[in-house]
Design a protein around this nucleic acid. Structure first.
Lengths: 348, 348
DNA sequence: CACGTCGATGTAAACGATTCCACGAGGAGG
DNA sequence: CCTCCTCGTGGAATCGTTTACATCGACGTG
């Protein structure tokens, strides 16, 4: 592969001049510039990003460590992150933690070794020494969706508290009183927060959240299935299951179907995180939708601000309830609730 | 960040010795090794992958350019690719082309500039000059899922011909005679092949595929919706719509629902590519399932073979029909067809 | 006319690793 | 006791860039 030296030789100039042309430094004669450009195309020369990074100590690359690529929420997040990063002149390297802390660490380490300019993380756990260390030693970092407490890192996330209140109001209006939740891992902020918000919203109606109605999941489908089976085995099963993410809702659906029960007649179902398929499931699933694209973009902007020396800001965006039929009552009967038309896409 | 020089100084040895310890070269005394290792942990030293790559001319990184991250098929492919690559000691950088050739080129260029060791591509089009050039000039490359004809690059893909025959047999048995397909872009092999396989299977029953029953899509949901609307506007609409990928099936479902029609009573639906949600859609969707994980792993092995100087082999794996209810007749009535249990996951 | 300025260019030193080569010490074999 | 190997080690070149500094001519100004 041709190097800058070959170009310099072909153009009859020094490598310095070639480099100047490539980085459009002002002080280069039109003649030299033309000869260099000609040589570049003749040789099909492309600058070696590795060498450039070594010299300039920047890679123009962002690392993104997400909890699970198979989760459509994160996949959409990843897409918007890449899009915004590209617009700002950065590339993105994605690391998939698969909800496993050790895999998350593997990716953080690899990304750090590659000297990425900044790191976007949606932590799977409470924070490994490695990640805490990276944050402390000044690696530009931003948390997105989930975060770690007690670390001085900007957080870009959405607040589902109001939407969860709306959901509980909706459920209460439909007459449901025995409400259960499948929680995410307690080590994650979203794992805890969604439960807290749910419990708080319930208490406004004087409804308790017994331990038996709090299933423990790990944000993966299989755990949703197990937790739901637990609920269904109870002497008094809940009337509603609220899954803290879309994959656990899928698992819940599997479990319900396996018992030959129907949603919402036998048991109602709602989920955190809206995905396109929820419109077409049987029945369409009521969900809490996050402004995923906006989150991704805001996170990138915060990180790039940090990298380029501007003060980064934390951002919190509201989530909203999308009522469908999985909790009972025809959606048409719902008066004021916001609805997604079947074809509405998240803005992207 | 500490460099190898700092480690050398701390350990009282030369950088050469540090490097030898790090790459466990045999000829290093136990004493020196111990001192170096101590210094490494004391300083929290991590080798700079950029510098190492520059010197060794290898990055131990694979590029993966996929057509659309939002498509669960590709997301699962990406996951298995990363998994296998990691097992073989490589990292993966994913580029998402969003079915746009110019974006695909952008990513190929970026990946090449970063001097990745090899490239895995599922081409969005017939092959840009850039990609053809890369293939010709010896960049280790493997096509996965889709490929480009006339280029000497191994292909790892699945053959859906038999499964499509099974599908058509299934549809014919149910009494359907007017069968339509939503095709993918003609510039992609999968876009053409699936139509060819379908037409061929139909002809075995003496059924033609009129132009009006061949909708043109681009593998995105919106195009599936438009094509389906076109079908429904026909004086004699088809009895079955076969979408060449899962997203266009989603669009088709949107269009059918928007007209207030029911599947399969008013119109039947089937899709290429099986995804977990198809079990829970209304109704569950009959689909052709590819061995996605196996494809990803085989592709990585082929590419790494190529990179490490072993002869790479093309691989073709069979797809299979998964009968559900979207084409009519209770699935229970289906005698010999292979079925996915609701909880079956792709092996991973 | 001399001098300072400025624009265009080249030379060479980094960046952080790997690796070839040389060198010295010590042990084995004659 | 000399020679030759082997082992452990360090010096220095190298990978492909960027960039500080030096140089050199031309030009404008006092």
């Amino acid at each position: 592969m041709a190097s800058i030296k070959d170009v310099a030789a072909a153009a009859g100039v020094s490598v310095a001049t070639v480099s100047r042309v490539l980085n459009d430094h002002p002080s280069v004669s039109a003649d030299a510039r033309a000869r260099v450009l000609a040589a570049v195309t003749a040789l099909g020369y492309r600058p070696n990003a590795v060498a450039r990074s070594l010299r300039t100590d920047q890679t123009r690359t962002l690392g993104l460590v997400i909890s699970d690529v198979l989760n459509p929420y994160f996949t959409e997040l990843a897409r918007s992150v890449e899009e915004e990063a590209r617009a700002l002149g950065y590339s993105v390297i994605i690391g998939n933690a698969d909800e496993r802390p050790e895999l998350q660490d593997h990716h953080v380490r690899t990304l750090l070794d590659r000297r990425i300019d900044g790191l976007l993380v949606s932590p799977t756990d409470g924070g490994s020494p490695l990640m805490l260390d990276a944050a402390r030693t000044g690696t530009p970092m931003v948390f997105v969706d989930r975060w770690i407490e007690g670390v001085d890192v900007p957080v870009v996330r959405s607040d589902g508290r109001a939407a969860v209140r709306d959901l509980v109001a909706h459920l209460h209006r439909l007459g449901h009183r025995r409400l259960a939740i499948i929680a995410g891992p307690a080590a994650t902020t979203t794992g805890r927060e969604r439960v807290d918000a749910f419990r708080e919203a319930l208490s406004a109606y004087g409804i308790p959240l017994p331990d038996a109605y709090r299933g423990q999941g790990d944000f993966q489908a299989e755990s949703g299935r197990r937790a739901t089976e637990g609920f269904l085995d109870l002497p008094e099963p809940p009337e509603v299951v609220f899954a803290a993410d879309n994959l656990m809702a899928l698992g819940a659906l599997d479990a319900i179907r396996a018992r030959g029960l129907r949603v919402p007649d036998d048991i109602a179902l709602a989920a955190f995180d809206d995905i396109r398929w929820f419109v077409h499931t049987d029945p369409p699933i009521t969900a809490i939708a996050q402004p995923t694209g906006d989150l991704g973009r805001a996170a990138v902007r915060a990180l790039v601000d940090r990298i380029e020396g501007r003060p980064p800001a934390s951002v919190t965006l509201p989530a909203r309830l999308v009522v469908r039929r999985s909790c009972g009552a025809p959606a048409a009967a719902q008066a004021p609730a916001v609805r997604l038309s079947p074809m509405q896409r998240s803005t992207s």
